[in-house]
Amino acid sequence: MSTDTQLDLWEVFIQSRPGSHYTHAGSVHASDNQMALQNARDIYTRRNEGTSIWVVPAKYVSASNAEDAGMFFDPSNDKMYRHPTFYVMPEGAKQI
């Protein structure tokens, strides 16, 4: 048989309603962006799950390394003062 390519892998991100974040839904195989969009529509939005789709070639996604997560996210570990709950509100003061 001839070479049997299953084409490139694309990652699919779906916006479930206007204004919301794009969330990773899964992946599809496709030869080009048009095919990737159509496949993503057919596979991930058969029940009105989306108002918009992004497709990105999987090879262009850079991911942080799970093993290094501790070190990688360390800079935020000791900065509780970035959260509103860090601060004590004077008695009787109302929230804005």
């Binding site: 001839s2 299953q6 496709a30 095919m35």
Partner: peptide, 18 residues
């Protein structure tokens, strides 16, 4: 699967072209 090979080949040729 075998009869669909030409579809995959056409898509791959288009991909190469792009």
């Amino acid at each position: 699967h075998n009869e669909g090979a030409w579809v995959r080949e056409a898509a791959a040729a288009y991909q190469k072209h792009i």
